[in-house]
């Protein structure tokens, strides 16, 4: 589904990603861990196509297409979803209205059946229930006055209604209490299918108790310095990141 080859990227002339290689197939969940400042969010933004993140080398192929040649919104309509580390507030635009517009945009592009107003409401409500969001959230301005946990659940709700092929979750677990964490994880698990894939960026192993990853990668200094299965996450939890850093330095 996604092939990242030797990806280099910089922000304002500062090199952040230094040759990332990653292969993701449909049906897989990849966890990306690593110390703060390692480049995890940058990778998420580069995949989503955010302006200001300049790719200087390498390639990204998504569903057989050159992903880097597409604009942000084209990528989104092609099924790439980014759950934000810091979701944005949009005053005056109700969550329901926002969802309606985005659902229509994505479905139309993917030539899926258009939803009638009634179907739309039913669909949104069903998904809201899955992330345990009360209906009155839907009529409130998008993310405005939402608590941290509510914002993150709203991200999962958006993911659920947009039915992406590849979802990149950027620290969706940080700042969540255990109940909220379970809701988020449960949402992701319910959406796991044979034909979609997830990149779960996280700082903490505990999320991976609930979302069991197929692969775990450590991103450090803009490179994937170690990959393994879910046991790697446990080891990181136990031993911290220092041994990885040392290993990485030894290689250089």
């Amino acid at each position: 589904m996604l092939t990242i080859k030797n990806l280099h990227a910089e922000i304002e002339g500062k090199k952040i990603l230094n040759g990332i290689n990653l292969q993701i197939n449909a049906g897989e969940v990849h966890a990306i861990m690593g110390p703060n400042g390692g480049g995890k969010s940058t990778l998420a933004h580069v995949l989503a196509g955010r302006e200001g993140y300049e790719v200087t080398e390498g390639s990204v192929t998504y569903m057989g297409k050159d992903l880097l040649g597409l604009s942000v919104d084209e990528r989104a309509r092609e099924g790439i979803f980014q759950a934000f580390q810091y979701p944005i507030e949009i005053p005056g635009v109700s969550t329901a209205n926002f969802l309606k517009h985005t659902i229509n945009a994505v479905r139309k592009h993917q030539q899926k059946k258009e939803l009638s107003a009634k179907e739309m409401i039913a669909f949104i409500k069903k998904m809201a229930k899955m992330v345990e969001m009360e209906d009155d959230f839907l009529s409130r301005s998008l993310n405005q006055g939402f608590s941290g946990g509510e914002k993150k659940r709203n991200e999962i709700l958006q993911m659920a209604v947009l039915e992406p092929k590849l979802a990149v979750l950027d620290e969706t677990d940080s700042g969540l209490d255990i109940d909220a964490l379970k809701i988020v994880a449960n949402g992701v698990n319910q959406l796991r299918r044979k034909d979609n894939a997830f990149i779960v960026i996280t700082h903490y192993q505990r999320l991976l108790d609930y979302i069991i990853p197929d692969f775990v990668h450590v991103l450090y200094n803009g490179q994937i310095v170690k990959s393994g299965d879910k046991n790697l996450a446990l080891k990181l939890e136990e031993k911290g990141y220092d041994w990885i850093k040392e290993e990485a330095l030894a290689i250089i």
Binding site: A48, R50, E51, S71, V72, D73, A76, R77, F81, Q82, F84, P87, I88, I90, V93, N97, F98, H101, T102, A105, V106, H109, Q158, L162
Partner: peptide
């Protein structure tokens, strides 16, 4: 960016 990442074209995002 947030709106466009959800699939809206730039002009639609601005309007919203």
């Amino acid at each position: 960016y947030y709106c466009m990442q959800r699939g809206l074209k730039q002009e639609d995002a601005i309007n919203l």
